[in-house]
Design a protein around this nucleic acid. Structure first.
Lengths: 210, 210
DNA sequence: TAGATTGTTAATCGATTAACAATC
DNA sequence: TAGATTGTTAATCGATTAACAATC
């Protein structure tokens, strides 16, 4: 089986290209080139072509790429031509922010279950989804067939929430708690730590002075 | 001038190590090793030592590292021994989530000015800081000497907010809007796109099946 | 001293860039 | 045909890993 490994950096850039193409398409642009895309997103044209080359040939030599076609191809590659069901655990400010984040719905991510431990929140509706007790996590996740779990609870509860999500059939986890989670290798895990980004900024600011 | 370039991956890992050390210190652990740290955060011991080596010698051969000392060194490297003043623009759910994010305050990030365009929000207090009209952005940013700006406004306003932050003296920007911002090269810019993370997950889930 | 663990060098691995033949 | 731009190969660059001498 031919499975040449794709750099994660390539996947992240594909995601960025897809937003560029979405915008270009909305503006009525029919054809684009690796040069256009490169300029629009701040990478080199060679990089753009190389990234596409991992997945096939989407352009026409001498002409460029059809915006709509290329966009469709990339969405397919990223798995965004399916609907993905997502379970959200934790309805603090961050959890709330995620429920109202338009980018998710637009790209086929459907939050189908929401859990919290706060009695005051249980039963309230967020959008169309009622907040369930965290005691019902397993049941709720199974009922809506969530493949993805988002952890937005305090650090000290994150590991047990992860364990329970996995036990309930979730295959991928997006973790916002600042802890290193232990998950089986077949589970996809990504960590988002908001403070890390600020720290990279301050490191670089420090460098400038030096 | 000896300025060997530090990989950004190294900075991100330093940030992760620092949290490990913070926890170890709170637990009363005095001494640690590259092996301990590596296990705790999921990298190789060689990687840990290499990362430190960019900045100096912090350990004792045959013994390991003093937890408190090492932690202090890393905070210093990351620029976290200063207080950083931060201006937040946009008080939607995400902006709110950021104001209440404990990790920021703990690590020396002090949100000193908050702006929004919604009349209903202007004047209300979030924590100790009153929301100001976005019309007063320049004045407000200057008054509190914010070095860092956080953009949490809709994509279509992000560029102009960036321009105004920079004009007001901000040196670094953390951008949550899903657009490519144009900023002068001396301005530090990091983009956080929440949807990208989910897309990397779904790409990898797709790969598993294939 | 013997055991442990650092700091550092060299080897490996992987990703980016440059160049160009293919071709519309 | 001449000009443009892709897809791909080879060269470069950079980051990670492995190995080991230094040394507590």
């Amino acid at each position: 089986m031919k499975t040449l490994k794709i750099p994660e950096a390539t996947i992240i850039r594909l995601s960025v290209y897809s937003r560029f193409l979405y915008t270009a398409d909305k503006r009525g642009i029919i054809t684009t080139s690796s040069g256009d895309i490169a300029e629009g997103v701040g990478v080199s044209p060679a990089q753009v072509r190389k990234d596409f080359a991992y997945f096939g040939e989407f352009g026409t030599r001498g002409v460029g790429y059809n915006v709509k076609d290329l966009h469709r191809h990339i969405l397919k590659i990223l798995g965004l031509s399916n609907i993905w069901y997502v379970a959200l655990v934790g309805v603090g400010n961050l959890g709330l922010a995620l429920t109202s984040y338009k980018g998710f719905r637009e790209r086929g991510f459907h939050i189908c279950a929401i859990f919290d431990s706060d009695q005051g929140k249980i039963g309230t509706k967020i959008g169309e989804v009622a907040v369930q007790s965290i005691d019902e996590l397993e049941k709720g996740v199974r009922e809506c067939h969530a493949q993805i779990g988002i952890i937005a609870v305090p650090a000290e509860f994150a590991q047990q929430v992860a364990d329970r999500l996995i036990a309930s059939g979730v295959k991928a986890i997006l973790n916002f708690a600042p802890v290193v989670l232990n998950v089986p290798p077949e589970i996809e895990l990504r960590n988002v730590d908001l403070a890390v980004h600020l720290e990279v900024l301050t490191f670089n600011l420090g460098m400038q002075k030096a």
